[in-house]
Structures are given as structure tokens and as C-alpha cells.
Amino acid sequence: MKVLVAVKRVVDYNVKVRVKSDKSGVELANVKMSMNPFDEIAVEEAVRLKEAGKVSEIVVVSMGVAGCQETIRTALAMGGDRGVLVQTDADLQPLAVAKCLKALVDKESPDLVIVGKQAIDDDSNQTGQMLAALLGWPQGTFASKVELGDGVVNVTREIDGGLETVALKGKAVVTTDLRLNTPRYASLPNIMKAKKKPIETVSPADLGVDPAPRLKTLSVEEPAVRQAGVKVGSVAELVEKLKNEAKVI
């Protein structure tokens, strides 16, 4: 069984993100970049499936600037077998990413695609779903448990009301949630081996995809600064404020 995992290069979760002065986006120059944490979970899940003998090859895909190579290398050091970089300077939006992934799935014919449920930069939470739709494959989103059966993938999903388990028949798209696993640290020998694993570079045009944005960003703003709270003297006062000031009850 072959698995395709998509990883995104995002601003590291430790970095305090700053809005660009022209409000066109967030500052990316000289900012530490890392693999999207949900994608790390996706890679880890694929590696565990391979270690369990259920998967034979893991192809890691990333899209964006040349620096995404590093993100792919990180995934290869965790246990991926080879990489594909869809290199472009374009501002990639979920639909373009899903189309590129679709083209790669057509080319690579994996049996399972695992992606993070969302990226911590734009929090879109769309790519996996769009890809499943484009492929016409079943999807198991927000996975907290993945079990490979005979021609079926059982995915336990984290939903508002608790947990739901779905059985996906045939080839499928899975998006990972936080509780699926804890990603490993890459070992030193594997980091060294990863340097020798192949990474193929293609462009969106090679895949027949026009990556031009479909959505226009009007302006990016800092969230409003949190206001100080108010101390209330009694329950009655609290209820009064909730009713008349906050108007929530």
C-alpha cells in the first residue's frame, strides 16, 4: 500500500506573528518556518502504518517556495521515502493545493492520502475535503484513530458531540486531528539518511494547474486588544449586566 502525505511550511508556532505594515498579510521575512503541526501528525501516522507493515511506500508532498524542501526533508527524516516539491512563488490557496494534489494522486496512484486537518497559518481546514471531492474518494476528517482493514479504512473522528467512527471503502483521504498521535523526533541517523532520499521538483504548470488565487485578501488586521474585565458585587448585578450590557441572556 502506498500513502501520500502533504506537508505545509508555516510560520513556527513559537513565533509571535506580526502583521505587515501595508496590511497585505503577515510578516514572513526572517521568520522561523516549520512543518505545520497537524501535518507532522499526518507524517507520523503514515510512518507508524509503515512500521506496522501495512504500508510499503510514503511519498511526501509540499508546495510553495524552494524552502519547502526543508519541510520535506524533515518528513523524510521522520520516515518518509521520497519527496515531491511543487515549486511556485504563487500565493497558494486551498483549491489550488487540492488540484495539485489531485494531479499528483493521478500520477502516483496512492491508496491513501493523509493531510493535516488544517494549517496553523490560515486555519482554512479545506484542502483535505476539496481533494476528496475532486478525487471522488471518501473522506475521514479530524481523525483521532486510523485503522486499516481489508479494503476499508476505519477512521474515528472528533466531532462536537464526541467521537464518530466511519468506515471508508477503497481509496480514501484522511485529515488528522491533534489526538491521533504524538510525532516522533527524527533520529540522527535518519536525518543523515534523509539527505540521500530523492526529492522531485515540479511546477503547478507541469501538473496542469493554474495556481492563481481565487480569493482576494482585502486587509489583514491584528486582533483587537483584550479589554480589562469588570468585578461585579453580586449575582444580581452579574445577571443584570449579562442581560442588559452583554445582551446574552
Binding site: E70, R73, T74, A77, L188, I191, M192, K195
Partner: peptide, 10 residues
């Protein structure tokens, strides 16, 4: 340099 970089990052 790129291997050292990967090592230091991890």
C-alpha cells in the same frame, strides 16, 4: 551546511 542545519533544527 544543509545537513548540519537539519541536525540543529531537530
Amino acid at each position: 551546511p544543509d545537513l548540519v542545519d537539519s541536525i540543529l533544527t531537530e
